[in-house]
Nucleic acid binder design. Structure first.
Length: 491
RNA sequence: CGGGGCGUGGCGAAGUCCGGUUAUCGCGCCUGCUUUGGGAGCAGGAGGCCGCAGGUUCGAAUCCUGCCGCCCCGACCA
């Protein structure tokens, strides 16, 4: 095994795959398309879950849990929804195995289900089927439910954390009395995701609306958060859907308003997945390995004592333990690595690979001077500070690293965003993966598909809250365009 | 589903064309000693139905047939 990772510039996807394996985040499993998330990777997911879960609850949502298995008939009630997912559904047809005379184990042909069950690719149908019973009056609204679950989408080609057959995610499903309220909810949760991205993942997300062609099957409107990866490709990291009354009508979910009239409710759904971890890797990490924002790092500081003379060993060890305790008292997660079977150089490389934001070294020199040496993972900067200032300094450094990563990502995005006004420049920009390419588009699906077929570029979103709304001419057809949209090659 | 490639100790590979005694190397693992400020050194050791099933042969990792699995490229897609 090479000590070095493949470099990003030479082979970005080899770098990505190798990093995940080497860091111990995840691995491909025996089941095709599914991944095993290893403890370190899962610890990051748990950090994400904890922060997001409390943000979701703070906005008035409650967690619940709905079944993994969905009757085919439920699934088929909303036409657009079925069409969108039909090609990637795993279907359960039998409920029993049996042993044959030659000891072979087979699916018992007698045990055929009367109605096939779908492994949920998303839970709208089974949830709206319950909502019919839960909602009667406007007093039952809004109904704000979230669930943490796994879903199954039978993908042809998979990549760790980015596209797998089984996905861990969070899916919110809400019901409202009015269209305006549901639309507001859709946008509110989009904002919540983007804020979470900024504050925790240290990733700047571009908020926007999906085109008709790219939107969720079953939604009236899909909003997205799009991020730009270091290789210039875009990643859709989360979506929030305004469902209109589609599922309410499909599942007959009505309520009585204050005036005593019966109305269909308005719905939303929104979700983010472990794809966030993929975004995290491809945004911040480098050729030495993972780079984690402190707020999501399972270990924020690693302490490495370096012994030279046996006489100092005890003193160093005690000092290191004292530092560990002090940091813990200040809610900093810390690991003391005093193993003697690896040399310091090995440990340095190891914790850089794992993306630990800060390394604290205490050796003979530090002990003599009552100091510690700190190294930042994000910049490689090394500084020696007095030992009694360690906790204070580490606290500010962790905050610095968190904001530096965000700043760096914003700068990268700005440097990789361009405007083009003709198709040739467009093709050139996309071919060299220039990042987000802002261009005029005539608004037709036909044009969108032709551009995709010719250049592989897709419309990532029609941005919200920006200053791109000056009219122009479509780069492909020359037809009038109300505004620029964001094109990119995407994952 | 098309096109290409690959299955050999935990991992990565050599050996396969042209069959030959005990299957090789690196990493990792175990034991011991010496080491410790950027992936330590030496010595010893464990670990293999060479993807599976048949066949050819005195003899198969190697040749033949069939099967299974995985990866890459396309079509498809969060």
């Amino acid at each position: 095994m090479d000590k070095q990772l493949p470099s990003r510039s030479e082979n970005f996807s080899a770098w990505y795959n190798e990093l995940i394996k080497r860091v111990g985040l995840a691995e491909t499993s025996a089941v095709r398309g599914c991944m095993t998330i290893r403890p370190y990777g899962y610890a990051i997911w748990e950090k994400i879950q904890a922060a997001l879960d409390s943000a979701i609850k703070d906005t008035g949502h409650e967690n619940a849990y709905f079944p993994l298995l969905i009757p085919k008939s439920y699934f088929c009630k909303e036409a657009a929804h079925v069409e969108g997912f039909a090609k990637e559904c795993a279907v359960i047809t039998h409920y029993r195995l049996k042993t044959e005379e030659d000891n072979a184990i087979i699916v018992d042909p007698e045990a055929k289900l009367q109605e096939e069950l779908i492994l949920r690719p998303t839970s709208e149908t089974i949830i709206w089927n319950s909502y019919r019973n839960w909602i009667q009056s406007y007093r039952d609204l809004p109904l704000l439910i979230n669930q943490w679950s796994n879903i199954v989408r039978w993908e042809m080609r998979t990549r760790l954390f980015l596209r797998t057959a089984e996905i861990l995610w969070q899916e919110g499903h809400t019901a409202h009395a009015t269209q305006a309220e549901a639309e507001e909810e859709t946008r509110k949760m989009l904002d919540l995701y983007a804020d979470f991205g900024r504050d925790y993942l240290a990733i700047p997300f571009l908020k926007g609306r999906k085109t008709e062609y790219e939107k969720f099957s079953g939604a009236e409107e899909t909003y997205t958060i799009e991020a730009l990866m270091q290789d210039g490709k875009a990643l859709q990291a989360g979506t929030s859907h305004f469902l209109g009354q589609r599922f309410a009508k499909a599942f007959d979910v009505k309520f009585t308003n204050a005036a005593g009239q019966s109305e269909y409710v308005w719905g939303t759904s929104w979700g983010v997945t472990t794809r966030f971890i993929g975004a995290l890797i491809m945004t911040h990490s480098d050729d030495k390995g993972l780079v984690l924002p402190p707020r999501l790092a399972p270990i924020q500081v690693v302490i490495i004592p370096i012994y030279k003379t046996p006489a100092n060993k005890t003193a160093l060890h005690q000092q290191a333990q004292r530092l560990q305790e002090q940091l813990r008292e200040n809610a900093i997660t810390v690991k003391l690595d005093d193993r003697e079977d690896h040399k310091p150089g090995w440990k340095f490389a190891e914790y850089e690979l794992k993306g630990i934001p800060l390394r604290l070294v205490i050796g003979e020199e530090e002990l003599a001077n009552q100091s510690v040496t700190l190294s930042r993972r994000d910049t490689g900067e090394r500084l020696t500070i007095p030992m009694d200032k360690a906790v204070e300094k580490i606290t500010t450094l962790l905050a610095d690293i968190q904001s530096n990563l965000y700043e760096r990502a914003i700068q990268f995005r700005e440097a990789h965003t361009c405007e083009v006004d003709d198709y040739d420049s467009f093709k050139a920009a996309i071919a060299k993966k220039a990042g987000f390419v802002l261009a005029h588009w005539d608004g037709s699906t036909e044009t969108e598909q032709k551009i995709k077929a010719e250049t592989q570029a897709t419309i990532r979103c029609i941005p919200l809250d920006d200053n791109l709304s000056t009219p122009g001419k479509c780069i492909y057809t020359g037809n009038p365009s109300a505004r620029r949209v964001v094109f990119a090659q995407a994952y």
